[in-house]
Simulated scan of single mutants.
Amino acid sequence: MPNSDDFRVKRIHKMLLEMAKGNFFYSLEPSEKNDNIASLVVMLNMVNEEIRASFVHQGFANAHHTPQCIIQLSLLMDANGIVEMVTNGSCSLLSCLPKEVIGKPITELMTETSRKKWAKKLPKLLKRERSETVLHLELMTHQGLILSNDCHISIFKSLDGTGQKILLDTVFFSKGEPFETGLPKKTLKVAKGIKEPRVILGPRDIQMIRDVHDMILNNLEKDLPQLKDLALQMGTNEYKLKYGFKQLYGTTIFRCLVQERLRKTRTLIQHSDLSLKQIAHMTGFKSPAHFSRAFKDKYGLSPSELRETSR
């Protein structure tokens, strides 16, 4: 793939257009360069992934009243990996015409990493007449956008005697609902001329902040350490951690923790038989009263009211 700055910017432009259309399936291949464009690619991938994850998460929280979109990518190949059939949905995802794919090796659509993975795994699968496995692959469009997903690979013997066939399937699935309705009770007003501090973030800084976000999601039942201690733990300073996190996620570290706790409690209330006291304890709330207050402020219903409507 060309590696000029002009091509990298064009990929970013294409990615932004897809996101503007509500398509959050794609990502961009990171560059080995350590410059502003590389930082932008990392940030764009991160934002896209967070939006996609939020839609899926929100969908599971209310499975009966959410729009859903299921797009399947499906390719049929011969034993050499030459594409023999492609669905319309696959062509739409890959931004190509059927004639641009049929008759060509599947590896032409893969990133270098996926090509190596494919070349290593395929001979083992072809040793049997029938076999199935799941392989995480990255397929690339002509514009340089990447479709990264777990793909189901099936090997079977053709009925017409033409030998073994390979079927590659994967489903891109998103569910979403409006995050909230109504106006917030309190509106933050900023005086003229006062700007929130901004920090310059390189790829390593962005990855570090993303690690902090992952730490929050994986430890909702625990309280975070003080910011200065957390910054020291992550190998950065308090200023960069505090304002860098706000810059990337649009909220403070503490508010992010509370929001994710509440989101998890909502899922548990609707889809588990745990008591409200157990749920509060599992998600780090100090008392049921504090949990109930915060939950009602966020969703307009108390935990007990939501549970009643979910039954």
Rank of each mutant, 00 (worst) to 15 (best):
R8M: 03
R11V: 01
I12Y: 00
M15Y: 00
M19V: 02
A20S: 03
L28H: 00
P30D: 01
D35A: 00
I37F: 01
S39P: 04
N48T: 15
E49A: 12
S54D: 13
H57T: 11
A61N: 15
N62Y: 11
Q68K: 10
C69F: 09
L76V: 10
M77P: 06
M77W: 02
D78T: 04
D78K: 04
C91W: 00
C91S: 02
L93W: 01
L93F: 05
P98S: 04
V101C: 07
I102N: 08
I102M: 09
T107H: 04
E108H: 13
L109K: 12
T111E: 09
T113M: 09
R115Y: 02
W118F: 11
K127Y: 07
V134N: 07
H136P: 09
L137C: 01
E138I: 00
H142P: 07
N149F: 02
H152Q: 09
I153S: 01
T162K: 11
T170H: 03
F172S: 06
G176W: 11
E180D: 11
T181H: 14
K189W: 09
I194E: 09
E196S: 13
R210T: 10
V212H: 03
L220C: 07
D229W: 01
L232E: 13
Q233L: 10
Y243Q: 06
I253H: 09
F254V: 14
C256W: 10
L257E: 08
V258T: 13
I269S: 06
Q270A: 15
H271D: 08
Q278S: 14
A280R: 04
F285T: 07
F285Y: 12
S287E: 08
A289Q: 15
S292T: 15
S292A: 15
K298T: 15
G300R: 09
S304I: 12
L306R: 12
S310C: 13
S310G: 08
R311T: 11
